[in-house]
Design a protein around this nucleic acid. Structure first.
Lengths: 124, 124
DNA sequence: CCGCGATATGTTTCGAAGAACATATCGGTA
DNA sequence: TACCGATATGTTCTTCGAAACATATCGCGG
C-alpha cells in the first residue's frame, strides 16, 4: 500500500482520543462513505481496500470506543448493510469540524512553507 | 514497529508541503534534536532509531525541499556533526507554530470526544 | 600515519501489514 | 428450500519497510 493519500488539503490530522483509539483521515473517510452507501464492503471498495480491511478498521473504532460507531445488519430485505450510530455520526462530525478548524489555523504557515520551497525551485 | 508517537498532545499533525515532501511529528522532533545535539546519529539514537533511519529522514527532507535543512560535516576538529540550516530552522519553527495553533483550535472537540468515551466507559 | 567519531551507503534479514483466497452465517425473497 | 448479497472470520501468501550488519570515507589530533 502506498502512503496516506495526500488529499487536496493542507495536512493530515490524527486525533488521539486515548491509548486505545484514534481518528485519522482514512477512518473518517470510511465512516463517511459507510454513512452514504449503507455498506462496509461498498465503502471499502470505493476507497480501494478489501472488505476485510474496512471491517477491521470499523472493529478498531467500535472496540476502541467501547460502543459501536457502526451498526451492521445481516440478511434482511436489503441483504444486509451497515449504518452509523449516533455515536458514529458524532465522532465523524467532530472530526470534520477539527479538520476545518485546523486548516484555517495553519493556512498561513503552510503558505509560507510552500513559498519557501518555490523560491528554492525557481532559483535552480 | 509501533505506530503512534505517544506525545502528550491531542493529535498528530502532518503538514503536506507538496507531493514530494511533508513534515510530521517524527521529522520535526528529529530536526529539533539535531539542532540541540549537533549530530544526526545522537539525535536518532535518542529517539530509538538507527543512524541509517535518521539519515534517511534527513535525506527525504533535504531532497524534498530541493535544498538542505540539515548541513553535515565529516571529520574535522569535532569529528563531524550536523546542524540546521536557516531553512531547517524555519521549517521547524513553522511546524511548532502550526502544532500549537492546532492544539488550541481543536481542544474543545477533543474534550467532547473524550467525554463521550468516558460516559460509555462509566455506563458499563 | 593511525585512530577516533561521525557521516555516508550497500546488503541482508526479519517481521508486520495488507492482499488474496476460502468459508461460514444470516435472513429475507423467489 | 435454494439463492443472493452482505456481514463475519480464519488462513495463507506477498510485499514493503525497518532493523541489523557491514563497510567506506572524511579529516583533525595525537
Amino acid at each position: 500500500m502506498k502512503r496516506p493519500v495526500p488529499i487536496s488539503g493542507l495536512g493530515h490530522l490524527r486525533v488521539v482520543i486515548d491509548q486505545d483509539v484514534y481518528v485519522g483521515p482514512g477512518r473518517a473517510d470510511l465512516l463517511e462513505r459507510i454513512a452514504g452507501m449503507g455498506s462496509i464492503s461498498a465503502a471499502g471498495k470505493s476507497m480501494g481496500m478489501s472488505y476485510k480491511r474496512a471491517w477491521g478498521l470499523v472493529q478498531a473504532l467500535n472496540e476502541g470506543f467501547g460502543a459501536p460507531l457502526v451498526e451492521t445488519v445481516r440478511g434482511g430485505t436489503r441483504q444486509g448493510g451497515a449504518r452509523l450510530t449516533d455515536l458514529g455520526l458524532a465522532v465523524l462530525n467532530h472530526y470534520r469540524a477539527m479538520e476545518a478548524k485546523t486548516e484555517t489555523a495553519i493556512a498561513g504557515d503552510v503558505e509560507a512553507l510552500r513559498a519557501l520551497k518555490s523560491d528554492i525551485a525557481e532559483r535552480k
